[in-house]
Design a protein around this nucleic acid. Structure first.
Lengths: 224, 224, 224, 224
DNA sequence: GATGAATGAGTGTTCATTCAT
DNA sequence: GATGAATGAACACTCATTCAT
């Protein structure tokens, strides 16, 4: 709890954007929340500033007062969305688990998280459609993600030491695989689900869940 | 093979738009080509009809004459893009290969194709952002994709019979995995590449290439 | 029959417009018929040349070939519509009737005709909205209508001579009254019918029918 | 009377557009006024939003800001036009007059009003060309018009009681007759005036004025 | 801080008309 | 005579953004 408060305080500090007024927390959170939905649903160009303002507790004028313009608002939404994922990731307590169980746990968490946060997935898709033009302006995000790799590396090395995992893999590739599986299961649900609906039973995500663990563990397994 | 070629040719002829004037082949192809770039680059709402028209041999007016409106044009672009992938896929001659080599070949082809056709990947992302609202209007695409599954199933069964593959897997899941890996390596290159640039050497896609084969084969492998 | 043929032949002769090709009778009639519906339904600016052409047996090009442009086509439609009314009017054989019966007959005919030809009424409304700008170009229409007044005058004078009608009325005013009643009952049906629907039983036109005769005869009646 | 004034005032306040921003009174009146002219002159499809905006104190953008779209603007014009007529009608003080004089007064007022407000007549014609599609959306107009009938009925009954009027007439028919005469004299002036110009002396409306009273009174007269 | 009013540059779409064959 | 293809000028409508108060 104390830690959480600290994080929040820290966030608040680093969060002050240059040139624009800092909104009171609740107003700001309300705007960001509404904007996230609009941007995630319609993309950057498809999103309407009016639509965001209309669903907000405050007025359109305030939106500009606090965030400057549409692009800055989008940037803040993106930043907040990434921060939320990594923060959640860090709350996982994997250190007491066996390496293979820890790995399974990470896969399960990632899939579950993505499934539970389709708006985040959509924002990442949107970013990629924009060639990452916006995310490149958010330096702290890079550092944030480095933590995920370090954490994974620790588990991987423990698994290698225990003879559970093969030794020729780079941690980034494990992360890449987990990301691909978890991401794709949400990002492409609409097209994949429809194109192959007669082959699919139940929601695609559920399937990908256990499937994902299986795929990752077999990829890592050391067949001495 | 001869039959397949015939089918393809026939499809090309009968597959034309209903309700709108038939454009001469070169004008039509020119418009579709230009439109694909614009839609892939900017999404449906971000794409500008004016921009498409400007880069075309004909005028904006003609664009409406042949395609009716922005949405119909987008639909044709989507249809053509999907058709191109599956048509290319069918040109693979896998029947003379050993099941595991055939499988590797499919992975390699899929990754290469996606890497070579980022606009297609972008269009699929865009479709997913629109919850597949447009693709649902293209029924023939569904059937087109069923062929990919049947082809994969044949190889998988041969691999099982040869004792190479484990027997508890559904062909759709193999397809799902290959799609996820190939797709993600292109779709998320901008964000993943930037977030983890210090961990990555060379283009992400190259890595994913051999990595993809490895992941798929280990997933399928039968460890007696 | 012979007379009708004669009329048709005459029509054909006077009908040749300046500067534009004469269409074969059936094609011309087909175009005019279709155009009348479109113009009557949508007005001059609301009518679509494409819509007319689409519902015609021939193509849009032919429409321009025969009629020159939208305005000329409208003019021909207007001319044909007026001609049809007056032609029908002339087929009435009133000379054997008593003056008051003849007058009733005229009212009845006019109302019935207008009710049966709402498209004509609509075209006249449209003309009035255009301040009669088009009809002013059709000189022969003026002469056509003079006949109606002369015919009415004959009956009126006979009625006066017979002591049935008061003597201080101008024939044009009788014509005006009959026109007003018959016209209004059709032209304003939509608004009047809706504004006073709870006061009206049955179709307005039926009511106006007998009502019309009553109004006109009382207006003319000579109360010794 | 006091109550009526109150109602009118209240109506004015509560009668405003739903769903669209409330325009300051002068801007709103200015737009409606300009729009009325354009719509009356050119019909719904013929009217140009640009033309309206150009003649307004504000911009085209504001027109959309306040009225939403062309159709809504047209509806407001229609509503305002009808309201104006009936409001004027209610200002007539007929209760002190003899029934036949009151009736003459109504005819005279109606004709004069229509002659003085040709734009209103044109809007009603336009409505009828549209089959009353727009007016059907203005429910309060129906109630507004019921008042006219009730007022007429009172006078008619008084006339019957006084032995001046015949007793077999429905008030709606009197209203219909007056409307037909007054309306037609304005609505069809262009066509009627031109077709019969050599029979007409002076403006048609002047003629119809006294003529109208004569027609109505003779229709009502009780020839004991 | 907060609100309604205002704006210019665009955005998809349509229309009557004409041209090449 | 007849057809499909082509066109430019409009047309209704929208959007992110700013101003006056």
């Amino acid at each position: 709890m104390a830690m959480k408060t600290d994080n929040a305080a820290q966030t608040e500090k680093t969060d002050r954007r240059v040139g624009w007024k800092q909104a009171p927390d609740d107003v700001r959170a309300n705007i960001l929340d509404t904007a996230q939905k609009e941007f995630a649903e319609n993309g950057f160009s498809g999103a309407r500033v009016d639509a965001i303002a209309a669903r907000t507790k405050t007025s359109k004028r305030m939106l500009y007062y606090y965030f400057g313009n549409k692009e800055q608002l989008y940037l803040e939404v993106l930043r907040a969305s990434y921060q939320e994922v990594r923060t959640a990731e860090q709350s996982l307590n994997l250190e007491t688990l066996a390496p293979d169980d820890a790995m399974r746990q990470i896969v399960r968490f990632t899939v579950n998280h993505h499934v539970a946060n389709p708006d985040f997935i959509r924002l990442v898709m949107i970013e990629n459609i924009h060639h990452g033009r916006f995310i490149r302006q958010l330096n702290e995000i890079q550092e944030l993600n480095a933590g995920a790799i370090r954490s994974l590396e620790k588990i991987y090395k423990a698994g290698c030491a225990a003879g559970l995992f093969r030794k020729d893999i780079k941690p980034i590739d494990i992360h890449w695989l987990i990301s691909a599986l978890a991401f794709f299961s949400v990002s492409n649900q609409a097209t994949f689900g429809w194109l192959f609906e007669k082959y699919l039973t139940g929601a695609r995500a559920d399937l990908a869940d256990s499937l994902g663990e299986d795929i990752v563990l077999r990829f890592l397994a050391n067949h001495g």
